[in-house]
Every structure is written in structure tokens, then in C-alpha cells.
Amino acid sequence: MKKTSTDAAAIAKPKSKNLSKRIFDCWQLYLFVLPAIICLLLFSYVPMYGVQLAFRDYNPIMGITGSPWVGFEHFIRFFNSYQFKQLISNTLILSLYSLIVGFPIPIILALALNQVKNSKFKKFVQTVTYAPHFISVVVLVGMLGIFFSVNGGLVNQVVQLFGGEPKLFMGEVKYFRHMYVWSGIWQSMGWSAVIYLAALSGVSPELHEAATVDGATKLKRIWHIDLPTILPTIVTLLILNCGSVMSMGFEKAFLMQNPLNTEHSEIIATYVYKMGLINAEYGFSTAVGLFNSVINCILLISVNKISKKIGQDGLW
């Protein structure tokens, strides 16, 4: 017998009742999640009200809604700015450099630590690699200034030991990107490896035992057992990292920046800070920040779709 529309409506009503009943029965769980939802609304959605600054000539006296509407004038000004190409290229190069070099290193570290049998040595390496994560950005940049100092810096002392001349590493443009990226890798690789080590803990020892009996070397076991196990985790983190390509950290770039290396150190984040807080051009800086966020969103959606097309799990 064919189901009529009345039958479908009759079926739909119990489902809605069952849903409300389940919510009522599990109200403790929803109450537990409520603080997180409130925080998400207050700090992620309510501030979106200020996005309209990007389309207004903001005047603090007139307020957001009272300021005149200028449409895409701020965006056009940014696109026509002589700094536009420099800002985009500096941000992309620095971010892609960090992603290409920094993303595989925690994976390699986790795979190597997973093969270590000596528990004391493994814990020692984990402690040494985790520790830099807890150093603040300000302290890290201060350490770079001390180690690479022209007068008495450790690096320049080694250079002089081999007959070289001391260099102003913090002031030369060609060294900025390398110092920024590799210091970041040193600081974060141990902490980032924790996720992969957690994923590797789910690998059954029986698989390795069977592979060893069949004559598989350590490299083959890593390639055919460990890597496929953590591949979903790798893909998920890669998508998230690609979605923040345009969002380089402001603090570190700003602290390492000086008049001698601005050619490579001026990125979108530092430019927004200078235009917004120092020059008080709130509408223009909001437009630049919104442009940056839109690009990140497009990249995130694109990488997620590519991941699903090649057969991997996406974020949604």
C-alpha cells in the first residue's frame, strides 16, 4: 500500500515529539554544554556586528550605525595601494614556507618516537621537544635577539670561530623568513607531535608483530602500518592549517620587525594593527581584516572539497 501525505505527517509528528522528549530527558547534558554555547555566541557571533565598519567611514562620535555608508571604498583603496602586492606576497610566502617545512616535521618526530623502545630516552626527548612550547613569543624573540646579536651572540661567535665576519641577522632582510619559520618549528614541533603520538597509540601491536614475522623492515612497517593509521589525522590538520594560510601570527612578526627588515616582515596582520590602532583608520583596517578572513574561508572550503574528492575524510 502507498503511504499518503497524511500518513507522512502522522509519522513526522512522533519524531518531533521524540526529539523534544530526548532533549527533556537529557537536559543535564544540554545544560552542561550551555556555557560553551553562550561563550561561542558572545565572542564569535556578537562581534560580527562590527564587520559593517568595513563598509562605513567610521566616526567614533557618530557610532557604527550613524557613520556614513561608503560601500566597497575601503577595499578598492586597499587593492590599489602600493603595498598590496608586498603584503600579500609576504604573508603567503611566510605562511607557505611555515606549512611546507613545519607540517611534516612533527609527523616525522612522532613516527620516530613511536619506534623508540627505551622508555627513559623517549620521555627525555619528549620533554626536551615539548618544553619550548611553553616559552612565550616575547621571550622567544628576546632569545633570538641574544643568540644572533652582533656583539657576543652565540651564532656570531661560531661564525667568527670559523673565520667569518659577524652579521646583523635580525636586521638583514634575507634572514628574516628563515629565522621566523625555524624558530617557530623549534617551538611547536614537540607539542604538535602529541596529536600524532595519540593516533599512533591506536595501532595494534599484532600488526607490527605479523609484519616483522613476514620480514618487513622498520621503514616498511612505518610506511604500511603507522602512516595509514594517522592519515585521517594528518588530512584533518592539513585542512585546518591550509584554512589559516593568510592568518600569520601578529605578535612574533611585529616583535621581530624593524626598519631594516620591513621589506619581508610587513604582513597583513601587522599592517592592520598599524592602520587600525596607530593611524585610527578603523573602517579601512576592518576591511583589510575582512578580506583576509574571506580568503582563509575560501581556502578552507577548497581544501576540504579537494580532500573529499581524493577519497579522504573532510571536516564536514
Rank of each mutant, 00 (worst) to 15 (best):
H178Q: 13
W191R: 06
G163Y: 09
G184E: 05
L168Q: 08
N151A: 09
G190Q: 01
M143N: 15
W186E: 01
S192F: 08
F162A: 11
I185F: 02
W186H: 05
V158W: 14
G171K: 13
M179P: 01
N151I: 03
Y196W: 07
F169R: 02
V138D: 15
Y196S: 02
W182D: 03
I195R: 03
Q160A: 07
G163S: 08
A198W: 09
Y180P: 04
F147N: 05
V158F: 09
G171Q: 11
Y196F: 12
F148W: 00
Y175H: 10
A198K: 12
G171N: 11
I195H: 01
S149A: 13
K167S: 06
V194A: 04
Y175L: 04
E172T: 15
Q187I: 00
A193W: 00
M170V: 02
S188T: 09
V137T: 09
W191P: 06
L197C: 06
L197N: 07
V155A: 05
Y196D: 04
H178T: 15
F162K: 07
V194K: 04
H178F: 13
V139Y: 09
I146V: 12
S192H: 08
F169V: 03
M170S: 05
E172G: 06
I146T: 07
V173E: 13
R177G: 04
G145R: 05
F162H: 09
G163R: 07
W182A: 05
Y175D: 00
W191H: 11
L154K: 08
W191T: 08
Y196L: 02
M189I: 12
Y196A: 02
G145V: 03
F176N: 00
E165I: 11
V139R: 05
G142C: 11
L168Y: 13
V141H: 01
Y175V: 02
N156I: 01
Q157N: 08
S149Y: 05
S183D: 07
G153P: 03
G184Y: 00
L168H: 15
G171Y: 12
S192W: 06
G142D: 11
V138F: 05
K174D: 12
K167C: 02
I146R: 09
E165V: 12
F148Q: 05
Y180M: 06
V155T: 05
K174A: 10
V159G: 02
V150P: 14
